[in-house]
């Protein structure tokens, strides 16, 4: 990759050990986050996207465990860091915001107390300086009358306001990377628009890199520069956002796009992906998507494809794009005409 990257995740593996069984939630995930850009990680429930995000900050709880791989942040492998070193990264150089603003703030401390905490840990700011900075941060994230908000408790704020407080908290120490795990999923659409816009403005202002975890392809199209599509613990496609929507390569990505009811155009019929996501203990040996894929051949069912380069910055994990492909050589995975004809 030509661009400067801030984070390189290589072959990350995170498993959960339940009753002697290993469930590979993240199974060899690889992606890069270019500096100052937004990488979207998109996938459905159980794809491992949130676990990947939590793994970056090593916030995986027992019975989960990171079992392998590298997480290189500015050249250093975070997985080699001890607990103390990792704590200095969290909330400082890498911050995180979560899906549920209603439950992600501690109910028994004021907004000010919670904002000051990171400032005290990483910047050594005392109560007064911390409060000043907290007011400044609340103003930055667009909270009206910030000075009176610092003494309020989370339950006194709406969902949108709480998510703004979470963002303010994440930005307290000018992080270089922000990991946002479904930050707007629990919010109403007009509030979602406000929050996404806020993140974009803040990114421009601070040249921050963002990892945006989401299941919403609309959010991806709107906020991301690059996208990694995940399915069953693996990245199946990586591309810049324009290529991904114009020329999706993996049959799963295509399936997602065809399943999506659109608010910006009329569609006669949705084309769902058939079947369901396999249960963790019934993972197919070949391509994870093969049982649901309309193009799958014997090869797909038997052997797992690798994530291969198919362009400058594009990768796909699918036999169709390899020399070994044993199906129809003229296969058309995506036919955009079928989608836009009724626009």
């Amino acid at each position: 990759m030509s661009q400067e990257t801030i984070l390189e995740v290589n072959d990350l593996r995170t498993s959960f050990f339940v009753e002697g069984n290993e469930v590979k939630a993240v199974d060899g995930v690889t992606f890069d986050v270019p500096k100052g850009k937004t990488l979207g990680i998109v996938g459905e429930s159980g794809s491992g996207k949130s676990i990947s995000a939590l793994s970056i900050l090593q916030l995986i709880d027992s019975p989960g465990e990171i079992v392998g791989g590298e997480i290189n942040f500015k050249g250093d492998n975070l997985l080699k860091y001890n607990d103390n070193q990792m704590r200095k990264i969290r909330g400082n150089q890498i911050s995180m915001i979560f899906q549920e603003p209603m439950t992600s703030l501690n109910p028994v401390y004021t907004v000010g107390q919670q904002l000051r905490e990171a400032l005290k840990i990483h910047r050594g700011l005392g109560k007064e300086a911390g409060t000043e900075k907290a007011v400044e941060l609340l103003e930055l994230v667009g909270i009206p009358s910030p000075r009176s908000r610092v003494t309020q408790y989370p339950f006194e704020l709406s969902g949108g306001m709480r998510q703004r407080v979470m963002i303010a908290m994440a930005l307290a120490c000018d992080p270089e990377l922000l990991v946002a795990d479904e930050p707007t999923t629990a919010l109403d659409v007009t509030i979602q628009a406000q929050i996404l816009e806020l993140l974009k403005e803040l990114q421009d202002e601070f040249n921050m890199s963002i990892i945006m975890i989401t299941h919403d392809l609309g959010v991806v199209a709107e906020t991301c520069d690059y996208v990694a599509v995940m399915y069953c613990g693996k990245v199946v496609e990586y591309a810049d956002v324009h290529t991904l929507f114009k020329n999706p390569r993996h049959p799963y990505t295509v399936g997602l796009l065809n399943s999506l009811p659109r608010s910006d155009m009329d569609q006669e019929e949705l084309e769902p992906i058939r079947g369901t996501v396999p249960a963790p203990h019934e993972m197919p040996v070949g391509c994870r998507f093969a049982p649901r894929c309309p193009f799958a051949t014997d090869l797909c069912h038997e052997k797992l494809p690798e994530l291969e380069d198919v362009g400058d910055e594009e990768q796909v994990r699918c036999w169709i794009y390899t020399d070994e492909w044993d199906g129809d050589p003229e296969v058309k995975v995506y036919e955009p005409e079928a989608r836009t004809a009724k626009d």
């Binding site: 659409v189 007009t190 979602q192 628009a193 996404l196 919403d216 392809l217 609309g218 959010v219 991806v220 199209a221 709107e222 906020t223 956002v241 324009h242 929507f245 114009k246 796009l257 999506l260 659109r262 608010s263 910006d264």
Partner: peptide
């Protein structure tokens, strides 16, 4: 207008 449209173009 607030709905994110799945089309970056």
């Amino acid at each position: 207008s607030a709905i994110p449209v799945p089309d970056p173009e």
